[in-house]
Simulated assay, not measured.
Amino acid sequence: MVELKAAGTVQDLLTLLTLPVSQSWIAVVIDGKIRDKRTLLKEGDEVLVMPLGGGG
């Protein structure tokens, strides 16, 4: 579980997580819907952070 300050955004969350991939290669799903990095998070949101990938 990650705690954010009040009115935190998806971008704030991604900054806290320090993921090993570029943020341009990440999709964020909140409560089952794809959202952008400006989306405000609220208490109880279920957030899924997924790396986007491709085959070659």
Results as ranks from 00 to 15, higher is better:
Val21Tyr: 14
Leu19Thr: 03
Ser24Tyr: 07
Gln23Trp: 07
Leu41Asn: 03
Thr15Leu: 10
Lys37Met: 09
Thr15Tyr: 08
Thr9Trp: 10
Arg35Ile: 09
Gly53Lys: 07
Val10Gly: 01
Gln23Thr: 12
Val2Tyr: 13
Leu40Gln: 14
Leu13Thr: 01
Leu13Gly: 00
Ser22Ile: 04
Leu52Thr: 13
Gly53Leu: 13
Ile26Leu: 15
Val49Ile: 15
Gly56Thr: 06
Trp25Glu: 08
Leu52Asp: 06
Thr39Ser: 09
Thr9Tyr: 11
Ile34Cys: 03
Leu52Pro: 02
Val47Asp: 00
Ile26Gln: 01
Gly32Ile: 04
Glu46Leu: 11
Val21Asp: 05
Arg35Tyr: 05
Trp25Gln: 13
Glu46Gln: 12
Gly55Ile: 09
Arg35His: 13
Val2Thr: 14
Leu17Ile: 07
Asp31Ser: 04
Gly32Glu: 01
Asp31Gly: 09
Ser22Gly: 14
Pro51Lys: 14
Gln23Lys: 12
Met1Thr: 10
Gly55Val: 07
Leu19Ile: 11
Val28Ser: 01
Val49Phe: 03
Trp25Met: 14
Gly56Arg: 12
Leu16Thr: 07
Gly56Tyr: 06
Thr39Gly: 02
Pro51Val: 13
Asp45His: 14
Ala6Glu: 13
Met1Ser: 14
Gly54Lys: 12
Lys37Leu: 04
Met50His: 03
Asp12Gly: 02
Gly56His: 09
Ala7Cys: 06
Val49Asp: 00
Gly32Gln: 01
Leu4Phe: 06
Glu46Ser: 12
Glu46Cys: 07
Gly8Cys: 08
Thr39Pro: 01
Val29His: 02
Leu14Thr: 08
